[in-house]
Design a protein around this nucleic acid. Structure first.
Lengths: 184, 184
DNA sequence: ATGACTATACCGACTGGTCGGTATAGTCAA
DNA sequence: TTGACTATACCGACCAGTCGGTATAGTCAT
């Protein structure tokens, strides 16, 4: 079953979020996924491959959500609006899946920067999309970076904003994605 | 000697950056600092305390740099300009120290979110400074988040921007810190 | 001024536990 | 009969933390 791999990744993400990153062990993942240790290794020959799979899942998830958003929003700035929704997910139970995947991302980054390859590989495409989203490229990059900043602070649990500020920031970032946005 | 603690922290940061986070062991730190394992434990009773010390050092470093900048720039937006310089350090060999400390921060975050306490504890003050820096608070938060985003992507080695884009983004963020900034 | 004692800083062999990974024999559904 | 596992036992590297000991400089009562 191809599906089991996804189940293992979901289980790993869940373990990372509930038990903490330092307890993301193969045994814990196996238990969470309802498999034996051998079963996990049957699908992922090493922990490294599992971590890579988690990062890949996050990338896929993000790109899928952006693509879905673009289907209904083909105007200038649409890629960025999709990206904001995908990574900040203010409006859905997607919060669960993306939040968990994200912790996996952090785990990977901490263990070994090379595990971020699936993410790094997509950066040229993302940069290209951002630079050609129909608005000023520098502003576009800043919007993306601010979304990243909010996202990573969320993952790490650093309280940079309260709920009200957060809502306002996300709203403003949305406004900034429109070509005719004027500061002030 | 009070100094040895700082030397150990510097050594730990250096190990994290050169050997990778997963090789940040007490043995490696000891060797880097020119001490024995026991010597390290004499100053930091546990690895956790060492990690906390590293995060604290990053916070201190950031606040010191912001403070230094503010001494020469008391105008509106000055805190943010100091923060940008402190965390993005485009112009100094401070790049070394802050970059290394930052990797320690990431290590701490990955091992256990509670190790970020020294950083989390300062967020209320930072938020207050940002909200009262003399410019629109929402824009101010976005500037800070974008700086964070660029910073963390740097630490993780995710290639979000090329050198030219990076320079332009930092320049733009600087412009945005002024009260009379207008988009376009 | 000498011997007893204390504080500080540090050494490094060792222990104990964790965890990724391996091995093997067997189950069971399609 | 092959693919997808289960169950369990085990290996061995790695690493945080321990602990008995060493070195040195200073204190202080006699």
């Amino acid at each position: 079953m191809k599906n089991t791999k996804a189940r293992i990744i979901a289980a790993a993400a869940n373990v990372a979020v509930t038990k903490g990153v330092q307890n993301l062990t193969i045994d814990a993942v196996a238990e969470e996924a309802g498999l034996s240790k051998g079963g996990v290794f049957y699908h992922f020959a090493s922990k490294e491959l599992l971590l890579l799979g988690m990062v890949q899942a996050l990338v896929d998830h993000t790109e899928t959500m952006v693509q879905a958003h673009r289907a209904a929003d083909t105007e200038a700035g649409g890629w960025l609006r999709g990206f904001i929704r995908a990574s900040l997910a203010e409006d859905a139970e997607d919060v669960g899946s993306i939040g968990q995947l994200s912790v996996g991302f952090l785990t990977a980054a901490a263990n070994d920067a090379s595990l971020l390859a699936p993410m790094n590989d997509r950066q040229p495409q993302w940069r290209d999309a951002i630079n050609h989203d129909g608005i000023d490229p520098v502003r576009a990059q800043i919007i993306r970076l601010a979304a990243d900043g909010l996202w990573i602070n969320d993952i790490m649990g650093v309280p940079v904003l309260d709920a009200e500020e957060r809502a306002k920031v996300i709203e403003r970032l949305g406004h900034m994605t429109w070509p005719d946005y004027k500061e002030g």
